[in-house]
Computed example of a mutant assay.
Amino acid sequence: MTEHKRKIGLFYGSSTCYTQMSGEKIAEQLGADTVDIYNIADEPLSTALFYRYLIFGIPTWDYGELQEDWEDVWEELDELNLDGITVALYGQGDQEGYPEWFLDAMGFLYHKLKQRGAQIVGFWPVTGYTFEGSKALTEDKQHFVGLALDDETQFELSSKRIEHWCKQLKDDFNY
């Protein structure tokens, strides 16, 4: 196994630094020597294929839209074969400012990655959030398809949520 295959690749897009800061906290929780972290504005998504375990961070922008860096590389996702790769997602959203579209971009990414063969892990309960709609919900609507963060209105909860989610990921990634 190559050295990359033993590590976790974390890829994020960020306009306001919240998604980047969350990624850095996730890497710290999982172990800086275990996680290679990349900004998708600077690193091709094809680098993800060097990893067996991936984490993708995506904020939802405005009315359920993709963040600009993700929008720029969205088509590249269609070229990735993710069979045999385990992927976890985290997203940033604003449940008060955009309650009808809370974390929609994470839902779009989830469906795109599933089509590419990824095994998605790291679902997160909807308890503790107030929103009207989200494309990032599991079929039973009891969980988000990844870690749900809202640094606009619940910043004080993010560190604890990241800590708990990372404990869950260690099991999901067999670390």
Rank of each mutant, 00 (worst) to 15 (best):
T2E: 14
E3K: 13
E3D: 14
R6F: 07
R6E: 15
R6A: 15
G9P: 02
G9N: 00
L10T: 02
L10P: 01
Y12Q: 06
S14E: 01
T16C: 09
Y18D: 09
T19W: 02
G23C: 07
G23S: 08
E24P: 01
E24T: 02
A27P: 06
A27V: 07
A27C: 05
E28M: 06
E28Y: 05
L30Q: 01
L30M: 02
L30C: 00
G31K: 04
T34A: 13
I37S: 09
I37K: 03
N39G: 02
N39A: 12
I40N: 00
A41H: 04
D42H: 10
D42G: 05
D42S: 11
E43K: 13
L45A: 00
L45E: 02
T47P: 01
A48E: 10
F50H: 12
F50W: 04
F50G: 12
G57N: 07
I58M: 12
P59S: 14
T60W: 00
T60H: 02
T60D: 03
D62N: 15
G64Q: 06
Q67T: 01
E68C: 07
E68R: 08
E68F: 10
W70K: 07
D72K: 14
V73Y: 10
W74C: 11
E75T: 14
E76N: 11
L77I: 15
L77K: 02
D78I: 05
E79V: 02
E79I: 01
L80Y: 10
L80R: 04
N81L: 01
N81H: 11
N81A: 11
N81C: 05
D83H: 09
G84Q: 08
I85L: 12
I85K: 15
I85N: 13
T86I: 15
V87R: 05
V87E: 02
A88T: 13
Y90P: 03
G91C: 07
G93V: 00
D94Q: 04
D94E: 05
E96N: 12
E96R: 04
G97T: 06
P99N: 11
E100K: 12
D104E: 04
D104L: 05
A105Y: 08
G107D: 07
Y110R: 09
K112E: 09
L113F: 03
K114G: 01
K114Q: 14
Q115L: 12
Q115M: 09
A118C: 08
G122D: 07
W124N: 08
W124Q: 09
P125Q: 04
Y129L: 06
Y129I: 00
Y129Q: 05
Y129R: 02
F131T: 07
F131A: 08
F131K: 08
E132Q: 15
E132W: 09
G133K: 04
G133P: 01
A136F: 10
E139T: 12
D140C: 12
K141N: 08
F144K: 09
V145A: 07
G146H: 10
L147H: 12
L147Y: 11
L149I: 13
D151L: 00
E152R: 10
T153C: 13
T153N: 15
Q154V: 06
E156R: 05
E156A: 13
S158A: 13
S159E: 13
S159L: 01
H164N: 06
H164G: 03
H164P: 00
K170V: 11
D171N: 14
F173V: 07
F173I: 03
F173A: 03
Y175F: 15
